[in-house]
Every structure is written in C-alpha cells, then in structure tokens.
Write a protein that binds this DNA or RNA. Structure first.
Length: 111
DNA sequence: AAGGTGACCGGCC
DNA sequence: TGGCCGGCCACCT
C-alpha cells in the first residue's frame, strides 16, 4: 500500500465488502458509484492488491459481461469459479449464468 | 525517465 | 458477431 493509492483503494474495498453473499458486481459498477466511471481498470488493480485482505470478496467482482476475467489471479486454476459456485452462482465457460439475476448494483453513498 | 502493460468500459464501425 | 480506440492511472522495466 502506498500513500497515493490508499484512498481510492480503500473506497473500492468499502463497496466490495458490501456485495452480498451469492451476488456479483462489476469493476465498472464499482468505479461508477465512486464517481470515477472511467477508472474501472483501477478497480481491477485494487482487487489485485486486495488479494491478501480476507474480508474483501474479490471473487464477486467480474467484468461487464459477467466474465471471470480475474480468475488467473487466484491460487489454482479454478479457485474463483469454485468460490462462486460455493455461493450457488453457476459458471459456464468462465461466464456467470443468469448474470442479470445475480448482479448486485452498488448503491450511492448518500450523505 | 520514458514507454509498455493491464482483474476495464463505452463508443464506434 | 467481432475488433479497435481513447480514456484512465499505478506499476514495472
């Protein structure tokens, strides 16, 4: 963790921790709710850095099409998929089945 | 110290 | 259907 990334990363983690069990969201959706719609790549980078943090469910973040684009960053070949399936989320060909139904829309922080 | 590289996305053709 | 581009920005040569 370095001083420049801390703030944004921490805000990413706050949102990510809210993703309900059995649901998923996207990098872009997190970026958007943080007011940085064009910084989805940074959300991906934040997930990468979050790997050591147990309380951030990085496996529940996929790309805009429900594709498991981050799977290679988990230990083993299929850990991300297995974690999702453990929550009742079906995955076929690296793709979330019924993506719209299990998609969780991050909410605006209002205050 | 400059340039390449992404766990991305929307627009465009 | 599929590919390319520009924007984004921290990291790594």
């Amino acid at each position: 963790m370095n001083p420049t990334s801390d703030n944004f990363f921490e805000r990413v983690y706050i949102v990510a921790r809210k993703i309900p069990y059995g649901k998923v969201t996207s990098y872009g959706a997190i970026a958007k709710v943080l007011g940085a719609a064009r910084s989805a790549r940074m959300v991906g980078w934040a997930m990468n850095a979050a790997h050591t943090l147990e309380d951030v469910p990085a496996h529940r973040v996929v790309n805009r099409n429900g594709l498991l684009t981050g799977k290679h960053h988990f230990d083993g070949t299929n850990l991300m998929q297995q974690l999702l399936e453990n929550e009742g989320i079906q995955v076929k060909d690296n793709q979330i089945v019924d993506f719209k139904k299990v998609f969780w829309q991050p909410e605006m922080e209002h205050h």
